[in-house]
Amino acid sequence: MSDLQKEVTNLIYRESTLLDRREWDDWIDLYTEDAIYWVPSWANEEETTDDPELQLNLIYLRNRGGLEDRVFRIESRDSYASVPLDRTVHVVGNVLVENENGDEVEATANCIIHTYGKKGGLTRGSLYDFSMRRVDGELRITRKKITFIDDRLEGPIDVYHL
């Protein structure tokens, strides 16, 4: 395994581990300030929306502040949907480094997310498209697109369910 493959894989693994262990601040630190977090919605049975600005997404956060909003809401303990908090297990696989260009890297991965909460156990899947940038020697996430394969959503969906 190349060093880059190892480094990218580690970053993606770390992200899911931090989400599952609810270490929100460390999770957010994996993202650059200008990071985009995008979960398109399904436009029809076969295609997702593809213009995040002018079409409806499930989540479209245009910088890290959007992730901070999510954490603020979770940590407030005042969100009906987030108390009690669902338990999650992310299992990431198929990590592929797609492109490397100087400090910029693109990678894809798959994730199976098992959730346990009020509705019992639910298992769902996501396709990940990452852009990463090397900042002070460390890879950080500059863009994450999550294609959540469900289009009939069961229960509230937040950043830790995806």
Binding site: V39, L54, L56, N57, Y80, A81, P156, I157
Partner: peptide, 18 residues
Amino acid sequence: LRKFEDFYLTAGMATSDD
């Protein structure tokens, strides 16, 4: 659309609470 996503979806920050 951004207001819609913020508020009106079960992946948003209000309808999920509803």
